[in-house]
Measured scan of single mutants.
Amino acid sequence: EEWMVEKALMVRTGLGARQIESYRQGAWIEGVHFKRVSPSGESTLRGTTWYNYPEINKFIR
């Protein structure tokens, strides 16, 4: 699984929702560690946020 939603990321990493938000707003790079995608497939600020687990795992190492 490369891309996953927040709940799956929480299960895989043990991070809480606030921790994920903090990383997203600070250290993680949009387009690398996470992306927002609307149902139409376009990038957007209001779409579902998807997280790239392999890239996040590399960051944590």
Rank of each mutant, 00 (worst) to 15 (best):
E1S: 10
E1N: 11
E1A: 09
E1K: 08
E1H: 08
E1G: 10
E1Q: 09
E1Y: 09
E2C: 10
E2R: 07
E2G: 08
E2S: 07
W3Q: 00
W3V: 00
W3D: 01
W3I: 01
W3N: 00
W3H: 01
W3F: 02
W3E: 00
M4Y: 04
M4I: 15
M4N: 01
M4V: 11
M4R: 01
M4L: 11
M4T: 03
M4E: 03
M4Q: 02
V5L: 15
V5R: 12
V5Q: 14
V5D: 15
V5M: 15
E6P: 03
E6G: 06
E6Q: 08
E6C: 10
E6V: 12
E6L: 15
E6K: 14
E6Y: 07
K7T: 14
K7E: 15
K7W: 12
K7P: 06
K7D: 14
A8I: 10
A8V: 12
A8D: 15
A8K: 07
A8S: 08
A8Q: 12
A8C: 12
A8M: 14
A8Y: 08
A8G: 06
L9H: 01
L9R: 01
L9T: 02
L9P: 00
L9E: 01
L9A: 02
M10A: 07
M10T: 07
M10S: 08
V11N: 12
V11A: 15
V11P: 03
V11F: 11
V11K: 13
V11T: 09
R12I: 12
R12W: 09
R12G: 04
T13S: 05
T13R: 00
T13N: 02
T13A: 04
T13W: 03
T13P: 01
T13F: 05
T13V: 05
G14N: 05
G14M: 04
G14R: 05
G14W: 03
L15S: 01
L15E: 01
L15Q: 01
L15K: 01
L15Y: 04
G16Q: 13
G16P: 06
G16I: 09
G16Y: 08
G16M: 09
G16N: 15
G16S: 15
A17W: 11
A17D: 05
A17H: 13
A17K: 14
A17V: 10
A17L: 11
R18E: 15
R18F: 09
R18N: 11
R18S: 13
R18H: 14
Q19L: 07
Q19I: 06
Q19H: 05
Q19G: 03
Q19F: 04
Q19R: 05
Q19M: 07
I20R: 01
I20D: 01
I20E: 01
I20F: 03
I20S: 01
E21Q: 10
E21G: 05
E21K: 11
E21D: 07
E21N: 07
S22H: 14
S22L: 13
S22W: 14
S22M: 14
S22P: 01
S22A: 14
S22E: 15
S22G: 09
Y23W: 07
Y23C: 05
Y23N: 03
Y23V: 02
Y23Q: 03
R24P: 01
R24S: 07
R24I: 13
R24V: 15
R24L: 14
Q25N: 14
Q25V: 11
Q25G: 08
Q25K: 12
Q25I: 11
G26L: 10
G26P: 01
G26Q: 11
G26A: 08
G26S: 14
G26V: 09
G26N: 14
G26K: 10
G26E: 11
A27K: 08
A27M: 08
A27C: 11
A27P: 12
A27Y: 11
A27R: 07
A27T: 08
A27F: 10
A27H: 09
A27D: 09
A27L: 09
A27N: 08
W28T: 00
W28I: 00
W28R: 00
W28Y: 01
W28Q: 00
W28V: 00
I29C: 05
I29V: 12
I29E: 07
I29M: 07
I29F: 05
I29D: 04
I29K: 08
I29Y: 04
I29N: 04
E30W: 04
E30F: 05
E30M: 05
E30Y: 09
E30D: 07
E30S: 05
E30K: 04
G31P: 02
G31E: 05
G31R: 03
G31N: 07
G31D: 05
G31K: 03
V32K: 07
V32S: 03
V32T: 06
V32F: 06
V32Q: 06
V32G: 01
H33D: 01
H33G: 02
H33I: 02
H33M: 03
H33W: 03
H33T: 01
H33P: 00
H33S: 00
F34R: 01
F34G: 00
F34S: 01
F34M: 03
F34P: 00
F34W: 14
F34A: 01
F34I: 03
K35D: 03
K35F: 06
K35R: 09
K35E: 04
R36K: 12
R36F: 15
R36G: 06
R36W: 14
R36Y: 15
R36L: 15
R36Q: 14
V37M: 11
V37C: 12
V37A: 09
V37F: 08
V37Q: 07
V37H: 07
V37P: 06
S38Y: 15
S38A: 11
S38F: 14
S38V: 14
S38P: 13
S38L: 12
S38E: 13
S38K: 10
S38W: 11
S38D: 14
P39V: 13
P39R: 04
P39S: 11
P39W: 10
P39M: 12
P39L: 12
P39K: 06
P39E: 13
S40F: 12
S40E: 14
S40N: 12
S40D: 14
S40G: 12
S40A: 13
S40Y: 10
S40L: 11
S40V: 11
G41A: 09
G41E: 11
G41H: 10
G41I: 08
G41R: 06
G41Q: 09
G41S: 10
G41F: 08
E42S: 12
E42W: 05
E42P: 09
E42N: 10
S43E: 11
S43Q: 10
S43W: 05
S43V: 11
S43I: 09
T44S: 14
T44E: 14
T44Q: 12
T44M: 10
T44I: 08
T44W: 08
L45R: 05
L45Y: 07
R46S: 15
R46D: 15
R46H: 14
R46E: 15
R46Q: 15
R46F: 14
R46I: 14
G47K: 08
G47S: 12
G47N: 11
G47F: 13
G47Y: 14
G47H: 11
T48L: 09
T48D: 10
T48M: 10
T48V: 14
T48I: 13
T48R: 07
T48K: 07
T48N: 07
T49E: 05
T49Y: 15
T49N: 06
T49V: 15
T49R: 04
T49W: 15
T49G: 03
T49P: 05
T49I: 15
W50F: 12
W50M: 13
W50Q: 05
W50E: 05
W50K: 04
W50P: 00
W50D: 02
Y51C: 00
Y51T: 00
Y51G: 00
Y51Q: 00
N52I: 02
N52P: 01
N52Y: 06
N52H: 06
Y53N: 02
Y53S: 03
Y53L: 13
Y53C: 04
Y53G: 04
Y53K: 02
P54C: 09
P54S: 10
P54E: 12
P54T: 14
P54Q: 10
E55N: 06
E55P: 04
E55A: 10
E55Y: 03
E55I: 06
E55F: 03
E55S: 05
I56Y: 01
I56S: 00
I56P: 00
I56H: 00
I56G: 00
N57D: 14
N57H: 13
N57I: 15
N57K: 14
N57Y: 14
N57V: 15
N57L: 15
N57R: 13
K58L: 08
K58F: 07
K58I: 08
K58R: 09
K58E: 09
F59R: 02
F59S: 04
F59L: 07
F59T: 04
F59E: 03
F59H: 05
I60Y: 04
I60E: 03
I60F: 10
R61I: 14
R61M: 15
R61H: 14
R61K: 14
R61E: 14
